[in-house]
């Protein structure tokens, strides 16, 4: 089995948006929407501060809430774990947008829903997604979780701390955040101060 996953090392990420813009160019994402964006949050008070630079995108959940609510079956999970969209079937009802806890799906001007697909066209050729390939801080790793020697498995194993977004919802994301700068974990999850 293949279980594709991505890990983002927040200790390295500087929130420069190279991934976001690489994604935009690679996937011809139109102006006005994004498959990938950066959330930079400041925590603390002067001079005890930290900033979390957090890229966000579709998390390719193990248990994706967007898939069951799709009335036409256009949202589905590929065998390798990529949560994908069959645009031919999309009726633009936005039910999946409503269901996504991460705001990762968007409507295209042509009336189709779209989102990050881990650059499946690259993955199918054995290449890395555009965001992983371009990242100048090398904070992203990608690969098969079922392969203990894949870059992503190694990164997760060696991380000081591993978090996922909104774990309380039971979505079991396949996008992991490593080494959060704030001791309490990801910003916006449980709150907290330095």
């Amino acid at each position: 089995m293949t279980r594709l996953a991505m890990a983002i090392d927040l200790a390295s990420c500087v929130g420069c948006a190279a991934c976001s813009i690489a994604c935009k160019m690679e996937n011809e994402v139109p102006l006005g929407v994004n498959r990938l964006w950066i959330r930079n949050t400041t925590v603390g008070t002067f001079p005890n501060l930290t900033v979390e630079h957090r890229p966000e995108q579709c998390l390719h959940c193990e248990n994706p809430p967007c898939v069951p609510v799709c009335p036409t079956g256009c949202c589905f999970v590929r065998d390798d774990g990529i949560v994908d969209i069959d645009v031919k079937k999309c009726i633009g009802c936005s039910a999946c947008i409503a269901a996504c806890p991460y705001d990762a799906r968007h409507m295209l001007p042509q009336g189709y829903v779209s989102k990050c697909d881990f650059c499946k066209h690259r993955v199918d050729e054995g290449r890395m997604p555009a965001c992983v390939e371009t990242c100048p801080t090398l904070c992203r790793t990608f690969g098969d979780l079922d392969d203990p020697n894949s870059p992503v498995s190694i990164a997760i194993r060696e991380a000081r701390r591993v978090d996922v977004l909104r774990p309380g919802l039971g979505t079991e994301p396949n996008l992991y955040y490593l080494n959060t700068p704030a001791a309490f974990g990801l910003v916006g999850e449980t709150g907290g101060t330095l």
Binding site: G15, C16, A17, S20, K24, V33, N34, L36, W37, I38, R39, N40, T41, T42, E56, I97, Y102, D103, A104, R105, H106, M107, V187
Partner: peptide, 11 residues
Amino acid sequence: MTEFYGLPFSV
């Protein structure tokens, strides 16, 4: 305080 590069589809 949060700022974005690009925005999620939260409209």
